[in-house]
Structures are given as structure tokens and as C-alpha cells.
Design a protein around this nucleic acid. Structure first.
Lengths: 182, 182
DNA sequence: GTATACATGTAAAAAGTTACATGATTTT
DNA sequence: AAAATCATGTAACTTTTTACATGTATAC
């Protein structure tokens, strides 16, 4: 469905930016729901340029380093807007290797499975801590933003990521406790 | 990481089965954490056979319809066991188109965003109901299973899927209520 | 007899990952 | 001077999806 296309259009629609800037966005804010690497981004930018949905101007950084600053075209913007207006059917449930391994729990002994669960738990707690720190510094969480601004979307998905992470942790903890008491 | 390979090995390790049986598994139980279609399964079965991890016997169904009943080999089993013993690092956060759209909420007006959220909510409530019905009929939920059995893994991931779904719904509801009161 | 389920494959395209490849700029 | 970051690309491969393709068996 060319979702990467719309993720890029949406970002460039907010602000003109380079491929490198996009890459950073995909690695920070968007990492919680849409990751993309530079090897996917650069070819897509080329394609979108050819399709007339974005254009770029070459900017010189320092002495001679060239970078391409991309902007959205009217055509790009209206394509993006019609994408965002579409209602979406539920996607297939995301894949999860850990849940798959858990499903095959009969092939593990008790100590191994508790080990696996604890290892996941440590990592998820670490991840949650980072998300909560991001939230702590977020302007909307400090009541500085308002609904309808770009920062509101940012806030709302961050909140969702924290809820998702807490639930995963709760599941891990409940499983561990159940396994230890049986 | 060839996860599909291990999903198939794990299932065949439980019971000998055909490609069609596998397909049904991937579409029912496993759909909540690892989906695969028949066009992925059949080539993988061929590959695993060539690698000596599984073998098959041809069974005649009815008059002449041939089906291939796959079994795991010792080599396949030990490969599977070493996979299941591995500790896993956290995977990248799964992609989610709806969260991506939500992130770009500044490009929607209030009624459109509430509409989108409600549409998701209806679908997720439906999905949750199905999961809860599956749980209701589950032997472990009726205290008929015990930890360590294959059904326990089944139960534990189903429980996780329900928790995940409830949290998604809670997120949707909180967002709707916040949007309606602002 | 007809519809649904059983049963197995391949082909082409799209999406995503990992590795290869290069060079400039800024910070320490 | 070295390390980190900025900056942009391609190649090869893996994974996944969608479409094409065919035929049998069973339940109603």
C-alpha cells in the first residue's frame, strides 16, 4: 500500500527536509510505529520526485558538501490528504517472535522459560523507562500544546506506545509469577 | 532469521501434518503473532525437506487425491530446540498504519479524526469479542490443562493477545474522549 | 448437483534488511 | 588528529503479498 510513501510525504509536508533528516525522524519519533532505514528512504525519495509529489533544491553545507532539501508539491499534498482521509481496516496482527516461542513453551523446561521471560522483562522495562522520559519532557504533557497541533499527534502516539509497553510488561510479569507458583 | 522455518518446525514437531494443516494453524491460533499464507508455506516445506529437517510420506485421501504428511527429523528437532533456547533481543517495534495516521493528526479536522478513531474502535471491539470467546472455550481457562503442556503455551499467548487488544481499545477510547472534550 | 472445504503448487511484485561504498563537516 | 555526525547512494538478498493455476473430496 506504499505506506512509506505517505510517511515521507507527511513528514515533508510538515517541514522541508533532507533524506538524512527523514532518516533521523524514522529513528526517533516514528520508531514506535514506522521504522525505515536510509537504504529504503533514498530510493523512495527518488521515486516520489519522479512522480512529481516532491521536489528538491540543492543546498551547500560548509565548503562543498551538497544536500538535497525536499519540499512537497501541491500534487503531493493532495495525495497525502486523500490517504489520510481513508478509513483503514484492521491490519493483520503484527508478528512477534517472543510470542511464537512462548507458544511452543512445551519444548522448554521451567527454568528456561522463566529465564526467557525475565530477559524480555529487563529489556522492556528499559524501553518503557525511555518512553516515559520522552513523555516527561513532552510539551503537551506539560500542558503547553493544544489539540490540533502537530505536537498533539506526537503526544497521543507516545501515550499509546507507553500503554502498549506497560501491558506487555504486565503480561510478562503475570506469566512469570504463574510459572513460579506452579 | 528464518522465523517461518522455526514456526513450521515447531508445529510439525507437535504433530505430523500437511501443508494445508499448517496453513490452517497459521490462520487460527498463530494468527495472533505469526501469520503465513500457503504461498509461503509450500516453498518453505520444500526447502526444509531438501535441508533434511523434515520428511514426508504421501497419503491418499479418498480415491486418488494425494497429500504430503510431513514429520520432523532428528536433525530438525535439534535445530528447533537450539532455536528455542536462544535468548532474544527486543525486535523493532511493529509497524502500525493507524498510529502513523494518528501521528499526522494535524492534517485532519476534529470530526474526521473522531470518525477514524471510532471506526478502529468498532473493529477492535469485534476482534476482542472473538478472542474472549476463544478463551472462554479454552481448556486451560477451565482449569483442565497444566503448565508444561502444549495447551499452556496456547493459553498464555491468547491471554497476551486479549491484554494487548484491551489496551489498544483503551487507548482509542481515551483519545476519543479527550478529543470530544476539547 | 453445487457449494464449500481440501489440497498443492508457481510467478511476479512489493517491502524490507544487510552489506557495500564514498566522502565532507563538526566536535572533542 | 581522531571520532562522531552529516550526507547520499547502490547491490544483493530475504521476506511477504498478491495473483495465477489446477484439481479432488465432502457435505448439503
Amino acid at each position: 500500500m506504499r505506506t512509506l510513501k505517505y510517511a515521507i510525504l507527511g513528514l515533508i509536508n510538515r517541514n522541508s527536509m533532507t533524506g538524512y533528516d527523514l532518516m533521523k525522524e524514522f529513528n526517533t519519533d516514528l520508531v514506535n510505529f514506522w521504522y525505515a532505514s536510509h537504504s529504503q528512504i533514498y530510493p523512495e525519495l527518488k521515486k516520489l520526485t519522479k512522480e512529481g509529489l516532491i521536489t528538491y533544491t540543492t543546498v551547500i553545507q560548509g565548503e562543498k558538501m551538497e544536500k538535497k532539501l525536499y519540499s512537497i508539491t501541491d500534487e503531493g499534498r493532495s495525495d497525502f490528504i486523500s490517504w489520510i482521509r481513508e478509513q483503514d481496516l484492521l491490519e493483520p496482527t503484527p508478528k512477534d517472535i517472543f510470542r511464537l516461542k512462548t507458544y511452543f513453551i512445551e519444548s522448554m523446561d521451567k527454568s528456561l522459560m522463566i529465564n526467557h521471560f525475565n530477559y524480555q522483562l529487563v529489556q522492556r522495562l528499559e524501553k518503557l523507562k525511555k518512553l516515559e522520559n520522552t513523555m516527561k519532557d513532552h510539551p503537551y504533557a506539560k500542558k503547553l500544546g493544544k489539540i490540533g497541533s502537530a505536537k498533539y499527534g506526537d503526544y497521543i502516539v507516545l501515550k499509546g506506545a507507553i500503554m502498549r509497553e506497560r501491558t506487555y510488561i504486565q503480561w510478562l510479569e503475570e506469566c512469570i509469577s504463574e510459572m513460579e507458583n506452579n
